[in-house]
Design a protein around this nucleic acid. Structure first.
Length: 758
RNA sequence: GCCACCGUAGCUCAGUGGUAGAGCACUCCCUUGGUAAGGGAGAGGUCAUGGGUUCAAGUCCCAUUGGUGGCUCCA
């Protein structure tokens, strides 16, 4: 009879099978009341689940002892809320809305559904759906699980079992879910699996090609009713769910999107689903708090702030995803760049400049072209060459081939050095067939490799650290473009570290310490690291298994020694080597993926790079690509949101605004302005014919850190009255000279807070 | 790229087939006011672009373009 081990290690034994609820009751009535479900041997289950053998069990509740929301509890609440939303939508829109898939997510849940032609779900109906959801929650109906066995001999015989129930509902999505579930179960017990054939069903009830899959005889499908099976709404679902709808607390539908069935593009209209997003919390107060946070986040939208504060502009005549930095935004970007540059200099980096384009052959050597041609701007072919091709009747397809071909000389060299068939034979083309051209650079590394190769190197000069704020161009899909965070032309804080294998860990450490310094100055103290490893089943990676193993080990070792939380992510590596990604949390807790550090054992081979070792022989350097802040565009975008446009003084486009009380003190205002500008402070004078209240309001809206109000009193005392951003009052007057000194110090130290006050 | 929604003055947005609107910003005038918008006047729009339906289109339809949200992708 079951012995149950609780999370604190204590054991409870029962003389007969018990439900999760019984276990909770045996611990205490309060817990039983708070319980939403149980976790049995790590798996979330219904509170009503029956336990008949020894297990490790924990009771899932809304929140832990510290009143912090519990992840598992929230998961169950949201999963359950998805069912309630689905019922509400079918009530509001129609029973013929077909449900496909409705899982919880990090911030809520969604339900993919097929809306029949002629009907639609629109945000106008959200109120009605929300109202219906609230009713269902208020009714506090139990989530009732029941199981129907799938008996293979009955599948096509119309017997009442799980499959024919779904087929009767004409729901091919649910049928598909069921088949997937049964197949997965069958995979676990291959010896019991039997072939099943089931006539499929279309949405109109007509039959389809037989569906063939494996299932174990007698396997069951579980269904959940929002209430009583047969009477209330129900859905095929593996669960688990909270005990009753009332335990959901508060749930709403939040937005609409479209999605494809199974995430795969298709012309079939029944593969186009509407994804309805919602979220749920145990209490209305928490839902309200979440909505408030969301509103707060949207107020920080860098696109909105960027427009309001005139930081950057995107112009459709210039092109999608191409950023025009206005004078104010340029200041922020330049200050940031200066800061990073200074830190790089401290770490022994040397700065280089390279052009924005390079020959196609360069990228064939590096492997960027044509491997990543779909995410690059099209090659630039010389006009004369194009005309000749055109005259000779060359088709476009043919031209593409000839642009993408590789000369025998280049291919032979690369294949020899990489000791692999890196350039496939079918890509090799006679020199007179090849069409040469240029490419807008998608990465800076080929240029940097050529700089490294341009002079001999001794092991004594290693590592060679070449840094460039290098602008690259990538053809992002139009639907992906987003303000500053996803663009088609951007400037990386790029550098390539050409080092010996032994130097890798120290160099990776160096990158991290740089990241630490810079994030800490910017007040982004919370970040984590992801180590991207290769997917061993994929062939997209270049290079030998041995060098991959070495590189991956180096990355993991470095990440482990860093002392921040990190995760290993197979399949996330670049094609030439493993990588370390940085994910930072901003001031309101949102995570942003910024840059990466990538170890590359391939580039040395491809570009035939070498240094002379102590043995007087040539050795291959390992290259570390690092752009820890991603791009200046994205980083600035993240910072705009992080600071909500209220930059620390050193980053502010306008650091001080002088506000004369009236024209009578304009002259003194000009003197104040001049003394600020003399020490390099970015200051302006508000000469408008407005009252001081209006001037203050305008400066506050523009998030100027310091307002210096000057009137006759101040002029007489050579003083300024200080008002700082975020403090809605006059802080009093101080001597101008003292203010200037304090401000210069604050800017010099890149202080996060406004520190100069009387 | 795909799906849905959207595009009206520099900005934020009203305008459901019948004479293009408001607030802010801008220009000028009055006001010279000590800490989050004093008052008045003026100027500003080919209603994203192109086609169509209609006696009549900002409004309805189609295409294009750009944006937003998601999907997919992200060296």
């Amino acid at each position: 009879m079951p012995i149950i081990t609780l999370p604190d290690g204590s054991k409870k034994s029962f003389d007969k099978p018990v439900s999760g609820k019984d276990v909770a009751l045996s611990i205490g009535p309060g817990l039983a009341k708070a319980a939403l479900g149980v976790k049995i041997d790590g798996e979330l289950m219904d509170l009503s689940a029956i336990i008949d053998h020894d297990v490790a069990l924990s009771i899932v509740t809304e929140r832990d002892r510290q009143k912090v929301l519990d992840k598992d509890g929230l998961f169950m609440i949201r999963h359950s809320a998805a069912h309630v939303m689905a019922e509400a939508i079918q009530d509001v829109i129609g029973k013929d809305v077909q449900l496909a898939y409705g899982p919880p997510t990090d911030t809520g849940f969604f339900y993919d559904m097929y809306v029949p032609e002629g009907k639609k779900i629109s945000s106008d109906q959200f109120d009605a759906i929300n109202k219906r959801m609230a009713e269902i929650i208020k009714e506090d109906r139990p989530f009732t699980r029941y199981e129907l066995a799938v008996q293979s001999r009955y599948v096509d015989g119309g017997m009442p079992n799980g499959m024919s129930k779904l087929r009767g509902e004409r729901n091919k999505y649910k049928l598909d879910n069921a088949i997937r579930a049964l197949s997965t179960m069958a995979e676990k017990q291959p010896e019991k699996a039997v072939e099943v054939s089931l006539v499929g069903v279309n949405l109109d009830g007509s039959t389809e090609e037989p569906l063939r899959f494996k299932a174990t005889d007698g396997a069951t499908l579980s269904f959940y009713a929002n209430g009583t099976p047969g009477k209330n709404w129900e859905d095929l679902c593996r669960g688990p769910h909270v005990p009753s709808t009332g335990r959901i607390g508060a749930a709403i539908v939040t937005s609409l999107a479209s999605s494809y069935w199974h995430g795969q593009e298709s012309d079939d209209p029944t593969h186009r689903l509407i994804r309805v997003y919602g979220t749920a919390f145990p209490t209305q107060a928490e839902l309200d708090e979440y909505l408030k946070q969301k509103e707060e986040a949207s107020k920080r939208d860098h696109r909105v702030i960027g427009k309001h504060l005139r930081l950057f502009h995107i112009d459709e005549d210039v092109g999608q995803g191409l950023i025009l930095w206005t004078p104010r935004g340029s200041i922020v970007r330049k200050e940031l760049q200066n800061f990073i540059s200074a830190e790089l200099k401290k770490q022994g980096y040397t700065e280089v400049f390279t052009p924005h384009i390079g020959r196609l052959e360069l990228y064939k050597t590096s492997g960027h072209f044509p491997y990543y041609k779909d995410s690059q701007f099209a090659p630039i072919v010389e006009r004369q060459a194009l005309e000749e091709l055109s005259k000779s009747g060359c088709t476009c397809a043919e031209m593409m081939n000839r642009v993408e071909g590789v000369s025998a000389r280049l291919a032979a060299g690369i294949n020899e050095r990489t000791k692999a068939n890196t350039i496939a034979a079918d890509r090799i083309m006679a020199d007179d067939k090849l069409v040469e051209g240029f490419m807008l650079k998608p990465m800076n590394c080929p240029h940097h490799a050529k700089i490294f190769a341009s002079s001999p190197h001794s092991y004594r000069d290693m590592p060679v650290r070449l840094a460039e704020f290098g602008t690259v161009y990538r053809w992002e899909q139009s639907g992906e473009l987003n303000g500053l965070t996803r663009v088609r032309g951007f400037t990386q804080d790029d550098a390539h570290l050409f080092c010996t294998e032994e130097q890798i860990p120290a160099e990776i450490q160096g990158c991290l310490s740089l990241v630490k310094t810079i994030f800490s100055i910017l007040g982004m103290k919370d970040y984590r690291v992801r180590v991207g490893l290769r997917d061993k089943d994929s062939s997209k990676y270049t290079g030998s298994a041995e060098s991959w193993d070495k590189a991956e080990a180096a990355c993991i070792a470095a990440a482990e020694s860093l002392g921040v939380s990190f995760s290993k992510e197979p399949g996330e590596a670049a094609f030439y080597g493993p990588k370390i990604d940085f994910v930072v949390k901003d001031v309101i807790g949102r995570e942003w993926q910024l840059g990466t550090v990538q170890v590359d054992y391939q580039m040395g081979n491809r570009f035939d790079l070498s240094y002379i070792g102590p043995d007087n022989k040539a050795h291959r350097p390992v290259v570390i690509h690092r752009a820890p802040f991603g791009s200046m565009e994205r980083f600035c975008g993240v910072l705009i949101e992080h600071f909500a446009g209220a930059f620390p003084t050193w980053l502010s486009p306008e650091q001080v605004r002088v506000l004369p009380i009236s024209d009578k003190t304009l002259d003194y205002g000009r003197k104040v302005l001049a003394s600020l500008q003399a020490v390099g402070v970015r200051a302006t004078l508000d000469e408008s014919n407005e009252r001081i209240q209006a001037k203050v309001k305008v400066a506050a809206d523009e998030k100027i850190p310091y307002m210096l109000i000057v009137g006759p009193r101040d002029a007489e005392n050579k003083a300024v009255s200080v008002r700082i951003r975020g403090v809605e009052k006059d802080l009093g007057a101080m001597p101008l000279e003292k203010f200037v000194d304090g401000l210069v110090e604050e800017i010099g130290l890149k202080k996060a807070l406004l520190s100069v006050t009387p």
